Amino acid sequence: MKWQAVIVDDERLARMELRRLLQSHPNISVAGEASTIDGALERLRLTGANLVFLDIQLKGESGFDLLSHLAPEVAVVFVTAFDEYAVQAFEVHALDYLLKPVAPERLADAMDNLNRRGSVEVRAPGPPVEAAEDEDQRPERLSLAARLFLRIEERMGFLAVAQIRAVLADGDHAIIITLDGRRLKVRKPLREWILRLPEEHFLQIHRGALVNLDEVQRLDEWSHGSFHVHLRGEPTPLIMSRRFAARVRAQLG
C-alpha cells in the first residue's frame, strides 16, 4: 500500500529532518507539511493523505486536538521530544510513538508496522485519558480488543489487552505476563491495572496478582481456604488467598 503522509511540526528543521529520513522508505510519499492544527487539516483535505506524523507540543496548541478531526482511515505516528505524553496516551490507537531525535531504526520499526497493516482500516486515536484522581473520576475500563501504548522496559511499545495472561505487583511497577510467556516490567502499578482492565475477563486473586480468566486451567485447593491457580503456559501456579477466594465466590457465584 502506498502511504501519503503529512508532517505536522512547528519546527521547520524537524520537518526537514523527518522528510529526509522518510526518503529511505519508498512506500511513503510526503504529501505536505504543516505547523498548526488548521494547517494540518487543510493539507489533509487537499491531499487526501492517509498518514500523519504528528508532533504533540505545537505553538499554543496540542497535537492531540487534531485527532478528533481525522477520518477513520488516517493512521497516526506521534513524533515528539517528550516521553511523558505516552503515559497519558494509555488508550490512544496510534501506530507508533517516536522520540526526537528520531533514530532511523525506530522509524524503520514504525514503517514495518505500517506495512504489516497494509490496507486494513486504521482507527483514528481519541484524546488522551487523564489518570483518575478519586473513585468518582475513575477512567473507563478498557475492552479486551483494546491496545495499550506504554513504556515497556526502556522503550515505548504497544500491547494488546487480549495478550495479557496475568499482571503481578512489583512495587510502583508491574510485571505483565503475556500469552507467549514474556515478562514485561511496566511503569504502572497493579492498582491501575485493576481499575483499567475489563473486569469480566480479569480477576484479582491476591493483593499482588491479577489474572486473565480465559488463561486459568484449573484451581487446586491448597491450605486454609486458599487455592493454587494454574495458568496456561506457566509452570508455577499463583496463589489465590483465602480473602480473595471469598470475593471470587461472591462475584462468580
Rank of each mutant, 00 (worst) to 15 (best):
G253I: 01
I176R: 03
W193F: 14
M1S: 14
G39R: 03
V248K: 01
I56V: 14
I177H: 13
L58G: 13
R20Y: 13
A160V: 00
K185R: 14
D172S: 12
A94Q: 08
M156Y: 15
L58N: 12
L51P: 13
A145W: 07
A146D: 15
H69T: 06
D83Y: 04
R196C: 04
A246R: 14
V129Q: 15
L99D: 09
P198L: 11
G157K: 06
D214S: 04
D136M: 09
R123C: 05
A162I: 04
V92P: 05
L203S: 07
R138E: 09
K188F: 07
M111D: 08
Q204G: 04
T80Y: 07
E105N: 08
R43K: 15
A209M: 02
G208L: 02
R106T: 06
G181M: 08
L150M: 13
D220Y: 08
R207K: 12
D180E: 13
L144M: 15
I177G: 09
L95K: 06
H206A: 05
A166R: 11
N212F: 08
E154H: 04
L159V: 03
E130W: 00
A124T: 13
R247A: 13
L179N: 14
G181C: 10
Q4T: 09
V122H: 13
R191M: 06
D170F: 06
R43W: 09
G233W: 07
S29I: 02
R116E: 14
A131Q: 10
D9K: 00
L159I: 01
R123F: 00
L159Y: 01
R247K: 15
K59I: 13
R249D: 09
G126A: 02
P128Y: 10
R106K: 11
A103D: 12
A75E: 03
V248A: 09
L203F: 12
S241A: 06
N27R: 15
E199N: 06
M240W: 13
R182H: 09
G157R: 04
P237R: 06
V216A: 10
G63H: 00
W222C: 10
